[in-house]
Amino acid sequence: MWEKLPARVKPFKHHLVGANWSVNKKPDWRGYGFSVIVSNEGKVVSGAKRLYGSEIVYADLPTAK
């Protein structure tokens, strides 16, 4: 699902922060990890690098003047 976000965001020209919970080891369920920040141009500017463990994702995004 997360891999589809850049294409979905681009037509609307909005920045998107897709924050998701993290886990320390593989659980019995799906839907964790892969937090991402997408620019208003539909480009991933930052994303989680690890599948397991806590991680903070940062990016500089332009603001309105």
Rank of each mutant, 00 (worst) to 15 (best):
G18N: 12
D60L: 11
K25V: 08
A19S: 09
V38Q: 03
Y52T: 00
G53R: 06
A48H: 07
E55V: 03
N20F: 12
P6R: 07
V45H: 02
L5Q: 09
K43Y: 02
W2F: 07
E55R: 10
V45K: 08
S22L: 03
E41I: 01
K43Q: 03
K65C: 05
L5W: 01
P62C: 09
S22A: 10
S39N: 15
L61G: 11
A48F: 06
W29L: 12
E3W: 10
S46D: 06
L16Q: 06
H14M: 15
P62V: 13
V38E: 00
D60A: 14
P6D: 05
T63N: 08
K4F: 02
G33R: 14
P27D: 03
G53H: 13
G31N: 09
G42L: 13
V17R: 05
L61V: 15
G31P: 14
P6T: 10
K25E: 14
V44A: 02
D60N: 15
L61Q: 01
F34N: 13
L51M: 11
E41A: 08
P62R: 14
V17S: 04
I37Q: 00
A7N: 02
P62H: 14
R30C: 09
V45D: 03
K26I: 10
L51N: 12
V38N: 04
E3Y: 08
W2Q: 10
L5S: 04
V23Q: 12
K4P: 05
I37N: 00
W21A: 08
V38M: 01
G31W: 09
P62M: 04
D28H: 12
V45I: 12
K65G: 15
V23G: 09
E55C: 09
L16W: 02
W21M: 04
P27K: 01
Y32I: 03
V9L: 01
E55K: 06
R8G: 13
E41W: 00
V9Q: 05
A19Q: 02
V23P: 12
V38F: 06
W29S: 09
G53N: 10
P27G: 02
K26G: 11
K65W: 05
W29Y: 15
G42D: 11
Y58T: 13
G31A: 05
I37R: 15
V23T: 15
S54V: 08
F34P: 07
P6F: 07
V9E: 05
K10R: 15
K13H: 15
K43P: 01
P62A: 04
N24Q: 15
V44G: 02
V17W: 01
Y32F: 13
L51Y: 08
K26A: 10
K65E: 09
E3D: 14
V36R: 07
H14T: 14
V9P: 01
S39Y: 00
G42A: 11
N24F: 13
A19Y: 04
V45Q: 06
K10T: 14
G53L: 09
N24C: 04
M1T: 05
L61P: 07
A59E: 06
D60F: 06
V45R: 04
V9I: 15
V38C: 01
R50E: 04
